[in-house]
């Protein structure tokens, strides 16, 4: 057992958990942040993606010890009150989700993609960059549309700030 202290969605939290606890289980089982999902056992589906110190990582492949002291952002932490993050809004407006299970990880990965590429995104790049996120419902068509749409929106909102 260890005491883990980290910042999640801007809030300092601490938990006493077994060392084998994965970050995703800390979030879901101990912090009740159930928006982050588990869809596989082999670090491939990306349903568990969160941001750790600003980078999109698979929270099912990170021990809580590795995240100790880190700044974690989950799907619950990206909107500003009622105002959706541009990526969230783009997923809704472009029908980029169906059952919603892969969606939180997809959105967290997609934000990271736009952060890295800025406005220089095209369809092929988005498809390639989504390699680590599996969706069984949408066929990706509208996810790709959503990410490209959000890239434009994020540019605009970044310019506004």
């Amino acid at each position: 057992m260890s005491t883990i202290k980290l910042t999640v969605n801007g809030r300092a939290v601490s938990a006493d958990v077994e060392d084998r606890t994965l970050l995703v289980h800390l979030l879901r089982d101990h912090l009740n942040l159930t928006g982050t999902h588990v869809g596989c056992d082999t670090s491939q589906c990306g349903a568990c993606v969160v941001h750790v110190d600003g980078r999109a990582v698979k929270s099912c492949t990170m021990l809580v010890g590795e995240a100790n002291g880190a700044n974690v952002t989950t799907i619950e932490g990206i909107s500003k009150g009622e105002e959706l993050h541009p990526m969230q809004a783009a997923f809704r407006d472009n029908h980029g989700l169906q059952c919603g299970y892969c969606t939180p990880g997809m959105i967290m990965s997609a934000i990271d993609i736009v952060n890295r590429h800025g406005g220089n995104l095209d369809e092929d790049t988005v498809r390639h960059e989504l390699e680590g996120n599996i969706c069984r419902c949408t066929g990706y068509h509208n996810i790709v549309k959503s990410v490209l749409d959000a890239a434009g929106r994020m540019k605009v909102s970044a310019a506004a700030e």
């Binding site: 670090s43 491939q44 990306g46 993606v49 980078r55 999109a56 990582v57 698979k58 492949t61 990170m62 990965s109 990271d112 993609i113 890295r116 960059e129 390699e131 680590g132 996120n133």
Partner: peptide, 9 residues
Amino acid sequence: IGDPAVRYR
């Protein structure tokens, strides 16, 4: 290597 999330770690 892997995918973007894997490359970060």
